[in-house]
Computed example of a mutant assay.
Amino acid sequence: MASRYPGYELRFGPPMVPVVRTLMIINAILFLLQMATKLAFHSPLVELYFGLTPELVFHGWVWQLLSYAFLHGSFLHILFNMLSLWMFGSELAEIWGERAFLKFYLFTAFLGGVCTILAHFFGIPQGLVVGASASIYGLLVAYAMTWPNRELLVFLIFPMRAKYFVMIVMLMVLFAQGEKVAHFAHLGGAIGGFLFMKVYTGWKNTKASVPTWSLSRYLQKRRFMRYQEEMAKRENAKTKVDELLEKISKNGMESLSRSERKFLNDASQKYFNE
């Protein structure tokens, strides 16, 4: 719904992007499969095999570090995550490209799983973890870093800048109570979102679209830095040589120390015989 003010647009959610739609469909199908197996076998078989259980990962079930992110514990759980994926992920997928967005989604999910495993390893018990929340919190961080001053309508009533909204959400998660809250998965996803943004957009310019790292640009930069260093060495050597030549003109060659003679000889061969 457009506004009468130029350059201002009011709408509920962005257009759907294919990669976001595909992820939502996969999550929905797997959630229905979860419900069906619970009804058929009276046991959460899908969660037991594909949810994240630290003890099983330590015994080789490493696929759980990613598969957990496509399962959910309840209808409200998947509803909140899929709405967030659509509303915050679609615009990021548009500016990054679908392949980069998918990498981001899987990376933040994986890091959420890794943080859960580390917490368990260091003595903080972690139960069965399911849900796309790690990726969602990564998306929130990336969204706030990309458009920090964009206003969001919280509960469709309160306007709030994206950066403040994400800060509040993070604090709510940090202080949330209950054994079923996967604090470390959320934390890992948020950290993953931050790191991904910094790696792909640079430490200063976080508003640009996601570029790819270039080996040729890196090598060119290294060559330029070496050239600058060499020029600085030449300038310093020239200044020192001028000082030694002045000393020789006043007091003779015998006034130079052994190290000064060596420096003069080396500098003349390296810098002044071209």
Rank of each mutant, 00 (worst) to 15 (best):
G202A: 02
S259H: 15
R217C: 15
E243P: 11
Y218C: 06
A232H: 05
N251W: 07
Y200H: 10
S257C: 03
S209I: 14
V241S: 02
K221I: 08
E229G: 14
R234M: 04
K233F: 06
T212E: 13
G188W: 02
R223Y: 12
H186D: 07
T201M: 11
W203I: 06
R258T: 11
M225A: 11
G202D: 03
G192P: 02
N236V: 09
K198M: 09
T201W: 09
N205M: 13
S214K: 11
A190K: 01
R217E: 15
L195Q: 05
T212D: 14
L215P: 12
V199Y: 12
M231V: 07
K247V: 00
M197A: 11
E235K: 11
A208C: 13
R258K: 10
G193M: 01
R226T: 08
E254A: 12
T212S: 14
K238R: 04
F224H: 15
M253I: 10
L215V: 14
N251H: 08
G192H: 00
K250F: 12
R234D: 01
N205Y: 09
F224W: 15
S257V: 04
I248P: 00
F196K: 04
G192S: 03
V241N: 02
K221G: 11
Q220Y: 12
S214R: 06
L245V: 05
G192W: 01
K240F: 08
Q228N: 10
E254C: 07
Y218D: 08
Y200A: 07
K233R: 06
L245M: 12
E260W: 01
E254R: 13
S209T: 15
T212K: 15
K221E: 11
S249C: 02
L215H: 13
